[in-house]
Amino acid sequence: MSTTMQSPAATESTQSSAGGEVGAVPSFDVTLRIRRYNVETHGDEAYWEEFTVTAYGTDRLLDALHKVKWDVDGSLSFRRSCAHGVCGSDAMRINGRNRLACKVLLKDLNPDKPITVEPLKGLPVMKDLIVDMEPFFASYREIMPFLVTGGNEPTRERLQSAEQRERFDDTTKCILCAACTSSCPVFWTDGQYFGPAAIVNAHRFIFDSRDDGAAQRLEILNDKEGVWRCRTIFNCTEACPRGIQITKAIQEVKRAMITRAF
């Protein structure tokens, strides 16, 4: 399909001559090149489909996807819930990079070229942009993502200093979107690697002064498929929509294992 594109500047001038409203948001056409997969209608083959929609300078990729689904082709399937970067539902590969569709502005994606949108790589695709997150969550469950304590229950809350809280602050920000794990080439190979997200969420408890399960979690991740498969590629850090320093967190978990072993 050829792009029916006008340059944003040209669109802007036609807009202002037509409406002339002060502060009007410029609109432009974008083409989405979407990797689609639907067993019921197209069999077991994924295929590309292009949609051109009109968008505004303030629109995010999610808005363009909505426009396709609501106005053009209702069969297009993708996950989203909060639409504000909080729930972690809509991670996908956008121009080859893992991003949340609700946090990417179209104007930042160079709308002159078709924008490629693919499901996360390395997880089984169920339909269009929806992948099966189960392998990802299985690894997450394995690292025991809950407070582990021993001894008597305190009568008050479990106190912690600001410095103790700061120690693991970065890794509390994870929204389990899977952008990191599915950006990792080691995970792509066979899906056996625990992946960055599981390590990030283990880090969140390993370095929490209130938690007593660090030894168990280090034991779990000291696995052939655990932290030692990390090759410090930094794809995860680059992909994380919450800006978590993932590679650093993985390195800190490695260091804790080494000091424990020697």
Binding site: M126, P135, N222
Partner: peptide
């Protein structure tokens, strides 16, 4: 469908740790 993606077995131990060091 997820079967091929499940971790086949746990392989804990210090081998990869020593290898890394």
């Amino acid at each position: 469908p997820g079967q091929a993606y499940q971790r086949r077995k746990t392989t804990r131990g210090n081998f990869e740790l020593y290898g890394w060091v």
